[in-house]
Amino acid sequence: MFWDYDRDSYPDMLFPAGGKLADKRVQGLPSRLLRGTSQGYRDVSGEAGIDVVRHYSHGCAVGDVDNDGFPDALITGFGGLTALEKPG
């Protein structure tokens, strides 16, 4: 998904990574967040905490849920939802 979470006019990219069935468990894989900059894309998954697997991920949707003018994101999936927001 393309969005501009920091509103710097460079599109950012969010990749829900899905998961797998292994060892009789549903295992998610770490999603990725790439921040667009004037020099290209930088992997900020760790900074955003999105590299921590919370669930098997499927889709994502963008909306400014806290009404602060910056778009937030929600990742759907098997067994949970993950919210991404700009820190207050």
């Binding site: 920091d6 949970g80 939802l81 700009k86």
Partner: peptide
């Protein structure tokens, strides 16, 4: 401004 993080929310699903 440039940051975004995963947050705890009330989206219990």
């Amino acid at each position: 401004r440039s940051s975004i993080v995963t947050v705890e929310s009330n989206l219990d699903d």
